[in-house]
Every structure is written in C-alpha cells, then in structure tokens.
Design a protein around this nucleic acid. Sequence first.
DNA 1: TATTGTTATACTCTATAACTATA
DNA 2: TATAGTTATAGAGTATAACAATA
Lengths: 149, 149
Amino acid sequence: MSAKPPVALTSSLSFQLGALGTTVADRFAARIAPLGLEPKHAGLLALLANGRARSQAEAAAIMGVAPSLLVNFADGLEDLNALTRRRDPADRRRQVLALTEEGTRLLQACNRIADGIDADLTADLAPADTAALRRALPKMTGFPEPADD
Amino acid sequence: MSAKPPVALTSSLSFQLGALGTTVADRFAARIAPLGLEPKHAGLLALLANGRARSQAEAAAIMGVAPSLLVNFADGLEDLNALTRRRDPADRRRQVLALTEEGTRLLQACNRIADGIDADLTADLAPADTAALRRALPKMTGFPEPADD
DNA sequence: TATTGTTATACTCTATAACTATA
DNA sequence: TATAGTTATAGAGTATAACAATA
C-alpha cells in the first residue's frame, strides 16, 4: 500500500501557487506585449489610476522595486503617451505622474486581457469554487486594500 | 458616484495570482536556502521522488528548462549527496538520476517548509474556502496528474 | 544524422553605486 | 545633510550556441 503519497511538495498550495503564478504572469505578459507594455507597466498604470501613488518614489515603494527601475517604467509609459511627468511646484524634486486618456485606455485594455485569462483559468471550476477563490486571494495578497476613493 | 471601480486590474485573479505566486516563491526560496537548495532543486527532487523523470532530458522537458540548466541543478544536488548519476547501460548517453537517502530527507524538509507556508497563507481563510482552493488549484495548474504509482 | 549531456558564450533583468538638482 | 530622480556600472539568472560521446 502507499499510505502516504511519496511527494507532497507538488500538492502543496505553496508549490502550486508559485507555479501557477509564473504561468499566469507569463501569459499576461505575452498578451499585453503587443500594446508595448510589460507587467510592471500595467501595475504602475493601475497604481496611478486608483490614486495610491503620485510620485515615482511612492510608486517604487509600493511596487517594491528600486527607484532607478521606476524611471525606466515611467519612461516607457511616457513614450506611449500613457502618462505625463511634471515637477511638483511645492517640491521641485518630485515628479508627479498623471495618467493620460491613452494611459486609461491602455489600462482598460489590460483589464480586459486579465479578465479573459481569468475566464480561461476558471472555466473548469465549479462556480462556488471560483467565488471562494475570489474571496480567498485578496486575504492572502493583502490587496486591493479596502480604501477605494 | 463610482458605479464601476476605476481599477479592476488589481482585483483580477490573474494579477493576484501573479503577485501571490511571486511572494510565495520568494518565501519558499528563503526558507530552503539554508538547506543549500533553490526552488528548482526542490522541483527536481520531487520529480525524481515520484518517478516521473529519470534522465536529465526528461526532467528538463517536464520542468520546462533548458537541458544545459538542468546540469547545474543536478550538479548542485550531487554536491549535497542528494542524488546519484549513473550512465544507463542500455543507452550510455543517458544519465540516470536517482535520489539518495539524503535527497529524500531534503525533500521531506521541503515538504514541511511548504506545509508551514500553506498554514500561514490559509490562516485567515474559512475552512471551506481553503478546501475550495485545494480543489481549484490542481485544475488550474494541471498537476499533480492523477497517475500516482 | 540525431540525441544526451556538457561547456562556453551572450543576453536580459535587476540591484548597486555614483551624480544632479532641489530641499 | 538628506531626498527625488537620473544615469552608469556590475552582478545574477537565463538562454543560445558550440562541442563530445553515443546511438
């Protein structure tokens, strides 16, 4: 008999979440690439849209990346006319980032792409399990935070 | 009014799974590092333990990495005395990998670490939601496959 | 000629360290 | 002196290409 399965590792939530996260991130990256975007670009767009970050330093802190990296992301989005940079008059060291209409359009396109992937992922799931997933994930990630607007 | 939330992206399963996957993978990596292991090492150990891969080429194909990379992983595990390499007498091109007792011990340590992270992740979840998660994830990742032994 | 494993090389991504300007 | 942003450099991780042995 095989009372205890020899390998529990691949059955653990940790392992499966890690693997699934990579897969999903790769798929998302592939589908937004034609828009000229990378995942971090989309994250920055979302951050600006919900007003949780206004300067580059704030965005870098929330996204957990080095400020020097955020320069590149902002550069890319600026090249796409997705955002504007303007110096904060009150503190001219700060670059205040603001979404443009094009930036909003790009973000909405990202939303649709994410929704499409969500639909694929949950296609084989019982509706109740999908609902449980939507309840559980925010508790595990810690976002989106309740504050909305 | 804000009938439609301005940013659905961070609420999508895709985004949350991507972010959570990175977090969990990082945490797992940090906790197995003292054992001298990286996540890919653990994956290879699991693959060998459940008998789904015997040669390096097979393991590389299943893990989705280049054969040249698998050499490094196998080297690392060999240095830890976690596996043995021996040429297949029937086809001397093939290196047949086999877990040692030490490899089994290391894999069990990884299992315990993964279980610990699982417990942390699900601490704030309703038991029913945790159960739903355990049902749903294998359907989304495609593994572990039903065949067991 | 094709395949397995290996080694060597190149490339991408990210992190770190200077530098400028403002405070 | 400290901070925001920027630029330049270096390191880690991965992929690609060339090689040796065997089929």
